[in-house]
Every structure is written in C-alpha cells, then in structure tokens.
C-alpha cells in the first residue's frame, strides 16, 4: 500500500533516498580513464569491443582527459619512469573518483620483480579494486567493475569522498 506522497499522486512518482538515487546514477555512469601501458590494455580493448561490451554496465564512455573521468583503470605495468605521470593524473581526476588496478603488474609488479618496475601501484596512489591475472580476462575486468558498483552503493553524500584516503602517503607524496 502506498504511503505519503505516493498515496496522493499514484504511480507517477517514486520516493527514494537522495543517497540512493545519486549512487544509482553514479554506479551506472562510471566514465573510465584507461591508463593503458601494456598488455592489459589490449584486454581492456576486448572488454570494450562488441563481444564483452562494457556499455552493458554503463561504463563505455572512455575519456582520455582526467577532468572528464571518474574511474581510473590502470591497465599494465607501471615503471618508476611512468610513476610520476600516473601520480599526476590521479590528482587531476575530480572527486568522487575510484581506482581499479587491472592485472598482476599494476597490483604487485607481477613477474617483473626488478630494478625498474613499481611493485604495485598502491605504493603511489590508493586503489579501490584489484584484478588478478596476467593479463586478466575481460570477465575479470567486468567483475571489478561490478565490485566497484557495489562499493559505490554504500556511499553517502554526507561523507566527504576525499576522507577515504586522507591518510594515504605514497612514495611520491613527499
């Protein structure tokens, strides 16, 4: 039985919480910035192409300007030479923003345990979702997207999005 405003206006309105409606909008309109450096970027290409079709999850609007994106997907190995660029791009993204670490290299350095490879991008920027695999299958990337959507559901406009990572200090934050 309808209550409140729905009782007087019938089925023409739906009532909800402001948080829910905003989170619903956000989670189905994640605009990825693909920081593609290596092999994982090829698998992201597959994820975006017809067979896996990332647009089913509302995340097909790939932007190459950090000002226009809210989901940073780090697809590939990050070297120490690349690290300052990733760091700068992360800070150029507007809040609220989320970071997905795609593949073994971005997550932990992967098989490249050596002098030039950063052993996981969480030494530089905070990460929300990690994807395993070398490279991960497109299903893995889509799964990360769904995980992120779940995380977004619990957001609230009353909480400052920056508060999540206010204690984060990476190797380049000095």
């Amino acid at each position: 039985m309808a209550l409140g405003i729905e009782a007087s206006l019938g089925e023409s309105v739906l009532t909800s919480k402001l948080d829910e409606i905003i989170n619903w909008g956000r989670k189905y309109s994640l605009w990825p910035y693909v920081f593609g450096t290596a092999c994982c970027a090829i698998e992201f290409m597959s994820t975006a192409a017809a067979q896996f079709d990332i647009s089913r999850f509302g995340a097909e609007v790939v932007r190459y300007s950090p000002r226009q994106a809210d989901m940073l997907m780090v697809c590939g190995t990050i070297t120490y030479k690349q690290a300052p660029i990733l760091h700068r791009i992360y800070h150029q993204l507007c809040e609220p923003k989320w970071v997905v670490s795609v593949g073994a290299c971005a997550t932990s350095g992967g098989i490249y345990d050596n002098y030039c490879t950063v052993q996981g991008i969480d030494q530089i920027i905070p990460v929300d979702v990690y994807v395993s695999g070398c490279p991960p299958r497109p299903e893995g990337i889509l799964n990360a997207l769904m995980d992120l959507q779940k995380q977004i559901e619990s957001n609230s406009i009353l909480i400052d999005p920056q508060a999540r990572h206010k204690d984060f200090r990476g190797i380049l934050d000095q």
């Binding site: 450096t37 290596a38 590939g76 030479k81 660029i85 490249y112 050596n114 002098y115 030039c116």
Partner: peptide
C-alpha cells in the same frame, strides 16, 4: 621512450 622498460634482459 622507456616508460614500459620492465627489465626483460636483466630478468
């Protein structure tokens, strides 16, 4: 270049 130098030869 070198942004994806991951030390193949050393490894």
């Amino acid at each position: 270049i070198g942004y994806l130098h991951r030390g193949f030869e050393k490894l």
